[in-house]
Design a protein around this nucleic acid. Sequence first.
DNA 1: TGGTTATTTGGTATATATGCCAAATATGAA
DNA 2: TTCATATTTGGCATATATACCAAATAACCA
Lengths: 109, 109
Amino acid sequence: MPNMNEKTNANYKARAEIIKALAHPSRLFIIDQITNGERNVQDLTCLVGADISTVSKHLAILKNAGIVKIDKRGAQVFYSIKVPCLLKFLPCVEAVLKNNVKERKACLK
Amino acid sequence: MPNMNEKTNANYKARAEIIKALAHPSRLFIIDQITNGERNVQDLTCLVGADISTVSKHLAILKNAGIVKIDKRGAQVFYSIKVPCLLKFLPCVEAVLKNNVKERKACLK
DNA sequence: TGGTTATTTGGTATATATGCCAAATATGAA
DNA sequence: TTCATATTTGGCATATATACCAAATAACCA
């Protein structure tokens, strides 16, 4: 990109990676589930309703992005939110969503 | 997902779609470029440094997600931010990023 | 109308993401 | 050590995303 040097470009890429970690229904659901406290992989697997390996990979993506943190206790791994400021952003996403719905309804009148 | 009814599931999917629209380096760059005012497709294409058809598709993704709005004037289309609250979220992403860098450096000491 | 500029859309090749199964690893208890 | 439980990782098939080129559409002007 002509007006973006290597460093700037890398920065946008890194930011996109973090946002990408949030951009999946199951991962958003997981984030909601651990908002008020930690949960282990087993419980999250049950809540999400997918294969445990799938959930484990979703959790790895969130952890790798620096969004959640873990606490190993025995054989269990408990996941919790690491970055509360990201949570403030979710209501805004919800607001965009509602506005989209409203606008699309308006088109049909 | 057992603990998620159809409606809830659809809601997470819809939210993920909006976030996904933000999750690309070029689209984040575009958002920065139009934060302080509208820009047309031509200028954005030059700034991003990709094919104009590629940029047009990125813009369509942002528009479809309800993140940006357009103003057609003559043959030109000007894009601007529609949802300022999403911008507040970007500094938090930046903070996560810096924290990740810090932690990964610490591992090497 | 015909030409010029601005933008979008169709098509396609390539890259990335997702989900499941099976296998590997880790932890604690018998 | 051997077993049982909890979690992660490897592999693979399928789905989605991305980028470019070429062609189509839109708006304006001569």
